[in-house]
Design a protein around this nucleic acid. Sequence first.
DNA 1: AATTGTGAACCTCTTCACAGCT
DNA 2: AGCTGTGAAGAGGTTCACAATT
Lengths: 213, 213
Amino acid sequence: MSQSSNKKKIPKNTITRLSLYLRELTRLEQEGKKAISSSELAELTDLTDTQVRKDLSYFGQFGISGTGYEVSPLKEEIKNILGKGKVLDVILIGAGNLGSALLSYSGFKIQGFNIKAAFDIDTRKIGQKIADVPIHDIEKIQDFLKKEKLKIAILAVSAFSAQKITDTLVNCGIKYILNFAPLILKVPDDVMVSNVDLSRELEIFSYFIKSSE
Amino acid sequence: MSQSSNKKKIPKNTITRLSLYLRELTRLEQEGKKAISSSELAELTDLTDTQVRKDLSYFGQFGISGTGYEVSPLKEEIKNILGKGKVLDVILIGAGNLGSALLSYSGFKIQGFNIKAAFDIDTRKIGQKIADVPIHDIEKIQDFLKKEKLKIAILAVSAFSAQKITDTLVNCGIKYILNFAPLILKVPDDVMVSNVDLSRELEIFSYFIKSSE
DNA sequence: AATTGTGAACCTCTTCACAGCT
DNA sequence: AGCTGTGAAGAGGTTCACAATT
């Protein structure tokens, strides 16, 4: 947001797609594939060859004319662009149904994200562990974040309490919130929120079903 | 996709935002608010007043100049546009950590989506119920979909088995898939897939953290 | 006076088309 | 010959600015 750049502006979706390329390249590398063309990578990601090349071109020239891209080096480049050199610690707020599922979800760890701690109000859960992650009293968030300088929080609480908790998180230096609560969080400009709203996804289907009748 | 229209083309994001307006209007109605202006609704959804009016204008003229919009009628209009008159049945594939959380997630039911049945390969789960939803043997999907003509499936299985199951679902008439598996599903043009990839959301944060260092 | 509805301008992102490299 | 990299064109979506309405 408040970022300067001497190069051209990078479309937001380009970042999303890089993540997609990384996933495929990681798989391809494991399968032993050495090189890949933009059109092959496009096929795998359901995009166009031009889109793939354009996306990569924002960050440099990684390809070889007439040959394509080398899988491993390109994978490393993208990992680097996405800042995935080291494991990133995150906290989880809310250890209910969804929160518990997220704690048990192995995908985060595989992708280099470590849920350092979880927080909940339920006294039956406080002090316990889920998938090796300790669950603390939500009142302790401030103390915790004073010691551990984390920037990312995953918010899996009810819409009712989400804004209040968000205010606390922002006060404690959290800059990125992955929000599962079905509401629009009010945050300062320097805080980034990404919303995952499961019902809304289905609602979009509902519209298309209605439209096709 | 294969939809004709005598009006202007409706941006994809407009549908997503309608869903947002609906959520706010539902809340406002409960709070007893009678009328709202586009700028108030914009404030609540973190959009602009013009955006709100433009979005609504694709579907008709619902406002009153000088006054704004009546909350209840507008809510009903949007419900109607989104095809939310009746409850929509869906099936869930995969009753693991995430699948179980989705079964217990009350948001779907509140929003008018009913998980009619779940399917899994784990024999310990088959025959059981989670949140009143029966879990069937995944081998029975075809039989089930022959009887029940559902169009929407939520896919919460591993990346490894997702494509194979998707092929089966598509063969059985499923047209909309909410996919939680971290891969791009190959489907025919008349099938719509919406991807929810949790790690990818965090990866985007990772990029911005890296960029701001 | 306040607010809607909307054509036109603007901006952003994607696709085209092709020069240039291996 | 085949494929990349990219300026230019095109498409799509958002914002502006203001006429119309209550």
